[in-house]
């Protein structure tokens, strides 16, 4: 990998659970529990997992939209974990986010052109005619017509709204764009348009994506590397091709086996896991997946596996086969 744009080390976010009249703390939600990864310039890291695994919390912590409990976030080598709001502002320009719901993340009373131009105005980078020209160019880049700048969000379809969100994220020339489920609210045919747009923009501008999604196929499509999360931890991380060809964590294998394949001749659905994801309030001791794992051993109930190299930069947190996981 080339230079490292983002480095996250041992990130934790815990929420207290309070109950009773005195609001005493009765437990802790281990939303993110020791997550480390790095992201190179121009690279896309996909973060997959099921609801409640902490992937969105990671996304928001990286941008300091929520304050992490502990850990370190380095952007371009500089530690931004404890920067003050004013100091952070300088960095806001280089990191942007696109949210899942383009209906909720656009101000309904602002015209689209103002929404996209707002970051430029706030940072004092352009005004008047120059601002308008910049916004028009951004509209073109995301496949919208500049004459649509005067329209309000409700006059756009879901896919177009997501394009507005992308244009707004592009406005400041960011180096990192965090995409939190950017296509899950869209129809299949529109989803493909937005994914293609994201790929094209990355090729032109060379920024990095931290791409959060629950849909493995979408992640597989857009990412260079993929990390799989379960109950607040990364259980496996590898190059995309390697991860999908040779998944080593039983959870990743179960996840892959659960995806219905759009081919009636392919192997029928065979759920590899039973039961539900345990509560992150009291995550199981040892390996958090042991309660649903087909291969769980006595050790898995006690010992907490850490990410270990299984060869070729393929890291897996599983005690099986001396910490290299299970081959399929």
């Amino acid at each position: 990998m080339t230079e490292r744009l983002l480095e996250v080390t041992d990130l934790k976010k815990h929420y207290p659970v309070r109950a009773g009249v005195l609001r005493r703390q009765v437990g802790t939600v281990h939303s993110v529990d020791g997550v480390s990864f790095s992201l190179g310039a121009g690279e896309t890291l996909g973060l997959v997992g099921e609801s409640g695994c902490g992937k969105s919390t990671v996304a928001r912590s990286v941008l300091r939209l929520i304050e992490p409990t502990s850990g370190q976030i380095r952007l371009d080598g500089e530690d931004i974990t404890h920067l003050s709001k004013t100091a952070l502002r300088r960095h806001r320009r280089s990191m942007q986010i696109v949210f899942q719901d383009p209906f909720a993340s656009l101000n309904p009373r602002m015209i689209a052109g103002d929404i996209v131009g707002e970051p430029l105005a706030v940072h004092g980078l352009a005004s008047g005619k120059a601002l308008e020209a910049r916004v028009a160019k951004l509209f073109e880049q995301v496949g919208l017509r500049p004459d649509q700048m005067r329209n309000f969000p409700h006059q756009f379809s879901g896919g177009q709204r997501q394009r507005i969100c992308i244009a707004r994220a592009l406005a400041l020339g960011p180096r990192l764009i965090v995409c939190d489920e950017p296509v899950s609210a869209l129809d299949v045919s529109i989803q493909a348009q937005v994914i293609n747009l994201l790929i094209d923009l990355q090729k032109q501008h060379g920024f990095s994506y931290l791409f959060i999604a629950h849909d493995l196929a979408v992640v597989a499509h857009i990412s260079h590397r993929v990390a799989v999360m379960y109950l607040g931890r990364i259980v496996e991380i590898a190059d995309k091709d390697e991860l999908f060809r040779n998944p080593r964590h039983p959870y990743t294998q179960a996840l892959l086996a659960s995806v219905p394949i759009a081919n009636p001749l392919a192997k029928k659905l065979a759920p590899l896991v039973d039961g539900d994801v345990p509560s992150p309030v009291n995550p199981p001791p040892g390996c958090a997946f042991h309660t649903r794992c087909r291969f769980a051993m006595e050790r898995c109930r006690i010992e907490r596996p850490v990410l270990m190299d299984a060869g070729d930069g393929h890291q897996v947190a599983c005690l099986l086969n001396d910490g290299t996981g299970q081959s399929q």
Binding site: D200, A217, A220, R245
Partner: peptide, 25 residues
């Protein structure tokens, strides 16, 4: 519709870079 769905890559098959899209809405 079939061409626009991304597929989880089967072993040995690299996923295509761009998806086929249906233009418009």
């Amino acid at each position: 519709l079939m061409a626009s769905i991304p597929a989880v890559p089967a072993s040995g098959v690299a996923a295509p870079e761009r998806l086929n899209e249906i233009s418009g809405t």
